[in-house]
Design a protein around this nucleic acid. Sequence first.
DNA 1: TTGGAAAGTCAACAAGGCTGTCCTAAAATC
DNA 2: GATTTTAGGACAGCCTTGTTGACTTTCCAA
Lengths: 168, 168
Amino acid sequence: MASGAAQDSGESLLFLTDEQVRKGIEAMFFAYRGFTADPDRILEGMDYGRAHHRAIHFIHRSPATTVSNLLMILGVTKQSLNRVLRSLIEDGLVEARVGKRDKRERHLHLTEKGLALERSLSDAQRVRMRSAYRTAGPAAVQGFRQVLEAMMDPELRRQFQTLKEGGV
Amino acid sequence: MASGAAQDSGESLLFLTDEQVRKGIEAMFFAYRGFTADPDRILEGMDYGRAHHRAIHFIHRSPATTVSNLLMILGVTKQSLNRVLRSLIEDGLVEARVGKRDKRERHLHLTEKGLALERSLSDAQRVRMRSAYRTAGPAAVQGFRQVLEAMMDPELRRQFQTLKEGGV
DNA sequence: TTGGAAAGTCAACAAGGCTGTCCTAAAATC
DNA sequence: GATTTTAGGACAGCCTTGTTGACTTTCCAA
C-alpha cells in the first residue's frame, strides 16, 4: 500500500508508521541471514555449526572465561553448551584449565588451532560488516549501533556493555 | 583493549578498527536475541515456533503468495516449510487455495484466526522496535536501516526491496 | 504426445535447543 | 567437622526445524 509515510498520528515521539516499523523488522530478519551466511559456509562440512561458532567467539573475546560465565552470555542450558564444548575440547580447539583459586571452575582458552578457526570465521564476518559499514557511512554506523543496543533486553545490554569496556 | 578509537590506518574508507567492527557483530547477536524474544514468548506453549511466526508474517505481508514464493523469501527447503504450513492449515490459521490458472500452485491466506495471531505477534515485536527507535532517535533509525540493507545478500536485498515497494 | 520442470507430499535423519536426573569435587556455611 | 551449596560434567529422552531422497500431480513445450 502506497500509503502516507511520516504522518505521525498526533504523538511526536511516534515518528514512524506501523508499516515502516514492520519494514525494520523485515530488514532485521534479512540482514541476520546475511550476517550468519559467511561463517555458516565455513562451518558446513566441518563437524561444527553456529553453536560452536558462538562459543569460539566468546572464548576468544574473553579468554579464561568460565563455563557459567559463557552460559549467561549465550543464554543456553549447560547441557547444551556442554555438548558443544566437549567436541571443541576433544578436537583440540579449546582448552579447559582448572581454576587456581577455585578448582571447581574451568577456565576456557582457545588453542592455536582454535585461534586459527576463530580468525577465519571472524575475518569472513568482518569483511561483510566492514563492507556494509563502508556502504552506509560513518553516521549510519553510529545509528545502527544505537538502535541495536536499544533493542537488547536490559540484561543482555548490560552483558554487552561489560564486554565493551572490560573485554579483551 | 582500550586502544585508539578512530585511527583509520591510512585508508579513508576503513574508518573503524577491527575491534570496533567486532563490537558491531556482537551487538547484532545480542540485539537479535531481543528482537525474537517477545514473539518467542507468545509462541511457547502453543505448538508453534519461530518458523511458524516467519511463515505467518510473510503470508500476512503478501496475501495469496505461493509456496515457492515463500520458499525463496524464507530460504528453507520446501519440505521444511511444508511441515510448518501443514500444521498451520490443519489448525485453521492458514488457508491454501488451489490456483485458478495453475492448479499446482497453492495461494496462501491467513484466516481470521491466523490474522489474530499475526496481530499479537507483530504487536509485541513492534512495541520493542518502536521503543528502540524512540530511544535512538530518527537519525539513528535511518542509519540502522541503511546498514542492515547493506548487510544483506544481494539476492535477499532484492527480495526486501521488492516487498518494500510492491508489498501489501 | 511425451518428456521435463515445477509444485507439493511423505519418510527419515541431523543439529541443537530443552528438561530431568544423577554424579563428583570443591567451597562455603553451620 | 558435618552439611549444604556451587561448578561442572554425563546420560537419557524429547522437540523444533533444518536437511536429502524418493514420489505424485500438474503444466507446458518440443
